[in-house]
Design a protein around this nucleic acid. Structure first.
Lengths: 223, 223
DNA sequence: ATCGAAAATATTGTTTACAATTAACAATAA
DNA sequence: TTATTGTTAATTGTAAACAATATTTTCGAT
């Protein structure tokens, strides 16, 4: 637990635990408990809380405590609407830019081909697995070249991962995503930006539709 | 200095000092110095730093210190690109939504009519003045109803204010903005969404063009 | 048995103190 | 004079102690 700063280590640890669902929505995060558990003092915990609060992964109430943020269909839809907007705009910018640099996007896509589906129980591996797919979208936004938007998208990405971890952790789905991603990148490389945008929009919206039915219906994909 | 929590008070104080330019880009922010100056301990200062760091108003280097973030033309252009995207998308969403609620936008606009130009030297008044105009755009984005995007826009807004404070604090300019804002709202209310979007785009881009020339050229509008 | 009030407990907010690291400075050698 | 290295001072990172508030428990009255 001594990489860079204790605060950073605590931050990344907590972030991953929330995204993976080990720390559940609404759950109280006790400063003292975490401090003893992680063998650090409360200072770094509190500093990490302030960052997570800004990321909206936790919510703090003065003198009441800090809690893992709630999930909801409304929030989920907000996230995906934001995602659609950002990614479509990214493609729009790629269209206008003279020298588009897609090697990072291509690299992210490559890392998802034939990626083995992690065994149940290995949370860390699951996280890495889902992050690999998520990374394609991130690199796409990053390629647009707007640093502000990129940073925002990273936070959005973490929340998306959280919902995916809850509802969309299924082999077939990621396999399908991989195919779609390849198609999107090919269209962009071929200069078919509008087609790429439309395909991406469909890719996102069909996923949302699927997830929505799961969120409303019985919860059998949470483990 | 005892409103809610000390951390919050410190946070808001520092944020305003950075936006107003009293704390200059690149300037080091000493924890001990601020602590004695504000008559608090270093704990809340550090917590506020973590939030400001996430807002990109400061940059922290481990064991080196915390510094007011730099400004640049590139960053400025990123911000305005993000702004254009978000606000245009907001109008797009208003177009699609059945019951658009524009009373907040209208309220924000009303507060800018005949707003007296603050006397030089009164930084707090200057901030309030510029925020009033900025608020129109914020309420417009908020009206779109996406909470995630709204929170992101608030951070963007603060940075925009910072650049405006540096380069665009001029009576005629805000007067002109007020006229444009009225026009935009009228077009939206009339259901002319595409026209509103195009007008907004021009409003933003002409402002960027003006600012860019000032940022590259001699700096005579900084006081 | 239930409701309410008061004490006890637990938790957060803040301060103070200590440890570790970095930056500044002076002394020495090239 | 310049570069380099060792020492000192300053600053950040972390931990521990204290204060204030919220929650829980306990006890009594209805």
């Amino acid at each position: 637990m001594e990489v860079l700063s204790v605060t950073t280590a605590v931050l990344e640890y907590l972030r991953d635990r929330i995204i993976s669902g080990e720390l559940k929505a609404g759950q109280r995060l006790s400063e003292a408990e975490l401090a003893t558990s992680l063998e650090v003092s409360r200072g770094p915990i509190r500093e990490a809380f302030r960052v997570l609060e800004k990321e909206q992964l936790v919510v703090s109430f003065p003198r009441r405590g800090t809690f893992v943020s709630e999930v909801s269909v409304e929030d989920f839809l907000d996230l995906y609407q934001a995602r659609e907007m950002l990614e479509c705009y990214a493609i729009e910018l790629l269209k206008e830019s003279e020298k588009r640099e897609l090697s990072e996007v291509e690299g992210a896509l490559d890392k998802t081909v034939d990626l083995p589906f992690p065994p149940p129980g290995d949370t860390e591996a699951k996280l890495k697995y889902l992050r690999a797919f998520s990374n394609f979208h991130f690199k796409l936004v990053e390629a647009a070249g707007n640093k502000r938007v990129t940073k925002f998208y990273r936070d959005i990405s973490n929340h998306l991962l959280r919902y995916q971890f809850m509802y969309a952790y299924i082999p077939g789905l990621t396999k399908n995503s991989q195919k779609d991603h390849t198609q999107i990148l090919n269209l962009i490389k071929a200069g078919e930006y509008d087609k790429a945008k439309e395909f991406l929009r469909v890719h996102i919206r069909s996923f949302v539709k699927l997830m929505k039915s799961w969120m409303f219906g019985p919860r059998e994909n949470q483990g």
